[in-house]
Nucleic acid binder design. Structure first.
Lengths: 325, 325
DNA sequence: CTGAAAGCGCTAACAA
DNA sequence: TTGTTAGCGCTTTCAG
């Protein structure tokens, strides 16, 4: 059996309170006893139980992050940025991918009971749950999802870059645009699509359509391309993320369509593969999104800020060959 | 304040033991009391505290995974595969990226105190720590790292595919090969390099050199290319992972070197970008590596197997244009 | 079928 | 400076 604080106390001939004090470098301990205790700790290889400590302190020194699923680099990068900062702040990191599981809300509640605060991405959990957690006092930060009254949030700028992207595509002569992706899956898309439509509305003869897809991955992109090939090809596919765009690209390529000659294709995120595919896209600071969320959450947990903060990180249009260099 | 089991007990006019029984669907409770308790639980919105429960049960219902750092898709995919299976098994998931931190061993010990078992990847932690944890009874699974006496392990086949890769490159006429990557960073490389050298040794006039790099990422790959350009170019760069290879590729491309005409370049992992870059590589089942580790760990935790298991997952050579189609 | 009581391992008032 | 003691919230014998 692993030694407990009582074992150490007995071994050093002191009380458990003294052991606790020594473990916490508490001031009021004579050097002599401190040494005795330290020796006992050494000899028994004592490490205080996190569980006992957490129960007594009523804090976990851990925090969590919830994200929808993990197809592709975007979430991975965000999570890793989060882990990195949270670890620097001395907190353990719990992760949960809801992956459309019906039990997701229950899993989130369970996780809420293991940490001092959590970051929630996308449409992983019903708002009502988040609001309940928030009123219950659980520190929360929303990441890349719609804001909620009184809760901190972080997101990347969708509007500005979506406007640049739209302008770019239209400047290239595209008139009929197809927006690919489902805002219900990626809440960010709402803002982006709105921006594109706003820009398009300012230009005569422009038409914008929308294709909702079940998943934002390469296979789906390929399918979108195939379907479009049977109908009339639009002038541009504006996709919700790079994987979708990459899929459209290969679907089109397989059919011998000339990109960007006949059609333009754009993505979003700027994942590594986008560079090698020459995809025009918008760069999001994925790592920083996670890192910023971790820092905000820490402020909420420790500081007890009065007002919630809402951070928007900049994004950047990256023009490459596939939408016309 | 959140209600405790005592609140529920008082509310239902029973003892806490009875509440506990009801919460656990324990048999010996009359239907009447069960209902009373259930109602009280409802009304107070009682959820048992994980902490209290864990302390009493002496189990966390959580497990962890440690990995070196997160540059690139490989670790991300593995972690996600792990999370997915672990969550299905009803366990919470803790992650820790050691990232060369000097405090890594301490962080791992701390994490060990929050979970029922953990998966350890690569050279994140000194073997001595792992052995100590193991003797202490902590369930462990090693992932893509050298085995340790009595501890389960999972890895992808390095030898077979490295042989195929070497044969492929040599068949393409390469005589002077450069192996890029540091086995101290990625333990898998030892086996791969050994396999390549074995195959090369069987062919006359072949020379194999090695370049150790500090990190296996794109920037490093570019640098390797630049350095090689100043000296004599080898016939083939056999890289430790895709990112490195992709970096070499762009470094070479920037200098106008014809790949695969003048030089061959190969990677390892088959990440998404590799497909779009046309990189010859070896496909590793990244997700499955994580998933398998999660399952093994579960067996160790729950079953108490007598003998450790060592699983090797198959890999596959994927030939694309950059090493000669 | 139900309750009392003893922990699980620690922290932190309060005394001394 | 040190020790005593009462929890933190739960599970689980052991009686009844």
């Amino acid at each position: 059996m692993r030694p407990t604080i009582r074992d150490v106390a007995r071994h050093a001939g002191v009380s458990i309170a003294t052991v606790s004090r020594v473990m916490h470098q508490h001031a009021n301990v004579s050097e002599a006893t401190r040494d005795r205790v330290a020796r006992a700790v050494e000899e028994l290889e004592f490490t205080p139980s996190r569980l006992g400590r957490s129960l007594a302190e009523r804090r976990h020194a851990a925090n969590a992050i919830v994200f929808p699923d993990l197809s592709g680099p975007y979430y991975a990068e965000v999570v890793l940025g989060y882990e990195s900062v949270a670890a620097d702040l001395g907190r353990s990191v719990l992760i949960l991918s809801t992956h459309g599981r019906p039990a997701a809300p229950a899993m989130v509640e369970e996780m809420a009971d293991r940490c001092d605060g959590m970051v929630v991405m996308g449409r992983t959990v019903p708002d009502s749950l988040l609001e309940r957690l928030h009123t219950r006092g659980m520190p929360l930060v929303l990441l890349a999802r719609p804001q909620l009254e009184g809760i901190d949030s972080v997101k990347a700028d969708n509007t500005g870059s979506a406007e640049s992207l739209a302008a770019h595509v239209l400047d290239r002569g595209a008139r009929r645009l197809v927006l690919v992706g489902d805002p219900d899956l990626a809440p960010d898309l709402d803002e982006r699509w709105a921006a594109v439509e706003r820009v398009a509305a300012g230009r005569a003869g422009t038409r914008v359509e929308t294709i909702a897809v079940p998943v934002l991955d390469e296979a789906t992109g390929q399918e979108v391309a195939r379907t479009a090939l049977d109908d009339a090809l639009p002038d541009a596919f504006v996709c919700g993320n790079d994987e979708l765009a990459l899929g459209v690209l290969s679907g089109l390529g397989a059919a011998g369509v000339d990109v960007p000659g006949q059609v333009l294709v754009t993505g979003w995120d700027d994942v590594m593969a986008a560079r090698y595919a020459g995809l025009t896209t918008v760069r999001q600071p994925m790592r920083e999104l996670g890192g910023t969320a971790a820092r905000l959450l820490d402020e909420v947990i420790t500081g007890g800020r009065a007002e919630p903060r809402h951070v928007v990180l900049p994004t950047e249009l990256v023009v490459r060959t596939t939408s016309g260099a």
